[in-house]
Design a protein around this nucleic acid. Sequence first.
DNA 1: TTAATTTGGTTTACATATAAACTATAACCA
DNA 2: TGGTTATAGTTTATATGTAAACCAAATTAA
Lengths: 162, 162
Amino acid sequence: MKKKKQHNQIVHFEDKEHEALMGIWWTGILLRKSAKRFFSNYLSSEVQFNIMIVLKYAEKEMTQNEISEQLLVDKSNITGLIDRMETAGLLRRTEAPNDRRCHHIELTEAGREIIDKVEQPYRNYVKNLMRIFNPQEIANITDYMARLQQAVSEENITALSR
Amino acid sequence: MKKKKQHNQIVHFEDKEHEALMGIWWTGILLRKSAKRFFSNYLSSEVQFNIMIVLKYAEKEMTQNEISEQLLVDKSNITGLIDRMETAGLLRRTEAPNDRRCHHIELTEAGREIIDKVEQPYRNYVKNLMRIFNPQEIANITDYMARLQQAVSEENITALSR
DNA sequence: TTAATTTGGTTTACATATAAACTATAACCA
DNA sequence: TGGTTATAGTTTATATGTAAACCAAATTAA
């Protein structure tokens, strides 16, 4: 039995607002770790899963750039991601007919099989995890996160200047 | 003016629970990006900030392992992080008197100056961001995230087996 | 007190992430 | 039309993240 790591008070919380924000931060980290382990036998990360889901449900041909924008993955990051997934046989690049700058990305047959095998168990896993919340709480979370995302995006952060 | 990237429906949401979970996931990513930009003139990431805050408020000498557990940063990751921060002059390793396996990590004078310069603006930034929530909502967020973290930790994820 | 196990930390190999510089093509516009 | 600008994608450099193998020191057990 592995000893459970527990992290307490990371930061010296000065206020409730900070504590709440760090809660979201921490939860995000834990979710990422957890998802990575969940997919580890088939995919190297949740990001790869998300890319494949986007491709599976896309109603049109997708370019790298479109995937990049939908998933908040930087374009310079997408290149390597698509490279590795192409090497792994999950998807392929094809030439876009009207724009010689971009490629269309599509799942291969093997990729489709894998996403089909992995998708439902993942949805069950999520469902199971979220059982701890009642419908009102689920709705609250969605609302809070949407508002916070909006606030972060609008912040237009000015880096601390020296 | 930079065009605002908007990400909509990443994943084809089957249910409310999934939507809520993805909201947290997404928010975590946006917060990380935002914090990185915020600190960029002084530190290369929020993780470095967190390490320095831990050191600043620690009531005893901290080892790498203790930092690792508090911050959920893998020990194999801590090594390089401390290396880089030591190179940057932010902190130093000293030998622990009673255990020749471990080091104590402490802020340098320069590191202390930087954390002192950066900490308050960061707290203001957080405060400003969270203004959009009322006290009840702040309390809800903290509660929800704590419960979800607990659930994720207990999950003891069984990876999808082939 | 030796032998087995645990713990703190490093190393290696690889994946993900960002910023910045760059190439090629496309779009715009005077 | 021709020159500027914007866009899609790649490359490079560097940071963060994980798993697994490893070493040395400490702890536990026989």
